[in-house]
Amino acid sequence: MNHDANDARHEMSGAPPLLAPQIPLPPYAYRPGRNAHPLRHPQGHMFGGVEMRPPLPAQNAWATETGHLHAIDLFNNKFWWEAHEAWESYWHSAPVGTAEHHALKGLIQFAALHLKIESADVATAATLQRNALQNLEVANGHGLVRGGRCLGFDLIEICALITATAPHLPAPKAQ
């Protein structure tokens, strides 16, 4: 799809402006069981692609990191699975136990939470909501995070968004 068509489709969606307009949005948003798996299906929009392991940007460079900005675009345009994949590539590169590692995991779970709500999988959604909040709270409490910002986000704001996304989910079962 060319950039013009991509922009027109995005403008119609009502989502905020693209942060990385140079990277087109995928032709469809993957929904498990409803359309082709992007990686495994021959007609998937990521089929045959090479798995990316981008290096982590410096802590204050996330707001200009193209791959991260594209992940936000994917999320804001309801490409939940694709956004989760994009953040997961950074998460693999993030050292375990760091604020970025926890924050990226929280974002991945936040994206997955939307998928589970759409598929009415309430139990999994409740668990994802709790885990996403826990990971972002851990990241927020990390000594390296200055002023509650990590990956360019205000983590307190993201936590509030996660709660507001599904305010009536039941308490998840104890692990």
């Binding site: 804001n76 968004l161 989910l169």
Partner: peptide, 19 residues
């Protein structure tokens, strides 16, 4: 299950992330 899932997911929505 459908009613309980719908009750749990009511009010659910998506808000955009902002840097």
């Amino acid at each position: 299950a459908a009613v309980n899932a719908a009750l749990a997911a009511r009010g659910a929505g998506a808000a955009p992330l902002k840097l």
